[in-house]
Design a protein around this nucleic acid. Structure first.
Lengths: 182, 182
DNA sequence: GTCAGACCTGACCGATCGGACAGCTTTACG
DNA sequence: CGTAAAGCTGTCCGATCGGTCAGGTCTGAC
């Protein structure tokens, strides 16, 4: 069964993501993943240095994209920042929808993961952008509301086509922020 | 050290809640709790039938309150339902703020807990009320956004006094729903 | 063919987990 | 006082976890 350019690696990542989303990171054992893939537990650890390495590889693309958003937002201020933050955040969350579910599945574990070590700082700057860099309670609370709204809605199975979902999420988020673009 | 009407029981619940919130349910061992309390692991299992029983007892009050909200919402419709749902939900989430954090700490585990077996049905009805019993995508997406917004904001450490937080959460949620009371 | 290296596995290991249990200490009560 | 119940603990147990390792199998290059 030994194939060169092993396709097994991809199958492992796919199966691990599915199981992590359903049962959580800690709630999924290497044995569970191996059973799902149909290989031995030792095979997992041949392709990945550790269980944590699987998680890191699953989260890295989304982490990079979040960093990119952070950079894109760095130069903006005021209304521009708010609108760019909302659309960028919504697009990001929808693009990495399964990864968002993964984050939910075991939050304390995720915050300890090296691939996400920058999350607190990134969140803080995203919050600031959503609040239009205001520190008024109304703006700060609104920013938190949008963070949660987009995060949870992306992770949920809303019975609405993705494009409609995107449009409505952006509109609802902007309203929550009391921000009405021209 | 044996006291009648043991105060230890309460200390166990308090310590368990704190540790569960930080490290997650699965990330906290009975040994961890016992160390925090300053008693033996066997003592925990004298006062509680199992680790799961501790979790259930922590979540039960919030679960009952959620059921109460569900009943209060049952008779309402239209605008009345929306406003009652928003204020009731926000008040509930803020009142059981630590329990909301607990829910976050290990979502897959929580959904399997008996004390929360009714959550899916309750969430569905709360969503319907928030959407004003409409099935338009705008209303449905808005309802999901509010579910997430309130949930996450309650679990976060927003640097704003609780009363201000409550007011702004309700206002932001109503705007997200495109609902503007007289 | 053959040889190096990639691929894969069964068997095993130490650590940790939730939980069971027998027995010791303290308290409340007649 | 005595005694029954409640409170508490040290110790042990089976299960499960992530991870290691020696060795078997397959593939592609020469």
């Amino acid at each position: 069964m030994a194939r060169t350019a092993s396709a097994l690696r991809g199958h492992i990542l796919e199966a691990a993501l599915g199981l992590f989303v359903i049962h959580g990171y800690r709630g999924t054992s290497l044995h569970d993943i191996a059973s799902e893939v149909g290989c031995s537990k030792a095979s997992l650890l041949y392709h990945f240095a550790s269980k944590d390495a699987i998680l890191t590889e699953l989260l890295t693309p989304a982490g990079l994209a979040l960093n990119q958003l952070d950079q894109d937002l760095a130069g903006l201020s005021g209304d521009q920042a708010v609108e760019a933050a909302v659309t960028g955040y919504v697009d990001l969350a929808l693009r990495y929808r399964r990864e968002v579910k993964l984050l939910f599945s075991d939050l304390p574990e995720m915050l300890n993961n090296s691939a996400l070590s920058g999350i607190p700082g990134l969140t803080e700057r995203l919050l600031a952008a959503l609040a239009g860099h205001s520190e008024e309670p109304e703006a700060v609370v609104g920013a938190w509301m949008v963070i949660g709204a987009v995060f949870v809605t992306s992770a949920s199975d809303v019975p609405v086509p993705q494009e409609v979902l995107r449009t409505q999420m952006i509109r609802s988020a902007l309203r929550a922020l009391d921000h009405y673009p021209e």
